[in-house]
Amino acid sequence: MTAAPKTQRLLLVILAIAALAGAALLALWGLQGRAAYFVTPSEIAAGRVEPGVPLRLGGMVSAGSIAPVGDGNSFRFRLEDETATTTVRYRGILPDLFVEGSGAVAEGRLLANGEFAADRILAKHDENYMPPELAERAERATAETVAAP
């Protein structure tokens, strides 16, 4: 007994799609870490980053950490994630959306002393969109809850 040609072709296409999905999954598995756009401060803290190699570092700009140094064109700030913090040095113009408490990506290299020397700074935007009044209200609410106890 043989199946109708239509059914055969359907089976063949399903098999082909399964094989294709499997191949794609394996390829992505192989890519895993290498397709990342940036490394995080905790990956630096874990010693997984070699000094001197060009790379990007991404994280949140620590509150109160942006400080101008020396000639006024240079800055020092800290990028943090949940577990670690890296100090970044940068000389140049900071993007408008580069603010404390929001995400940023630094392009440069890790120095031997554990600091990160950046040649370029990109601001990262999160997925939240709200009007200014609402953002103010949210900020005031968090400030009050922090001040309350």
Binding site: L28, A35, A36, Y37, F38, V39, T40, G58, V105, L122, K124, H125, D126, E127, N128, Y129
Partner: peptide, 11 residues
């Protein structure tokens, strides 16, 4: 979701 990207996650 899989990789660190400059592009934000979905809203």
């Amino acid at each position: 979701i899989w990789w660190n990207t400059l592009h934000q996650g979905r809203s």
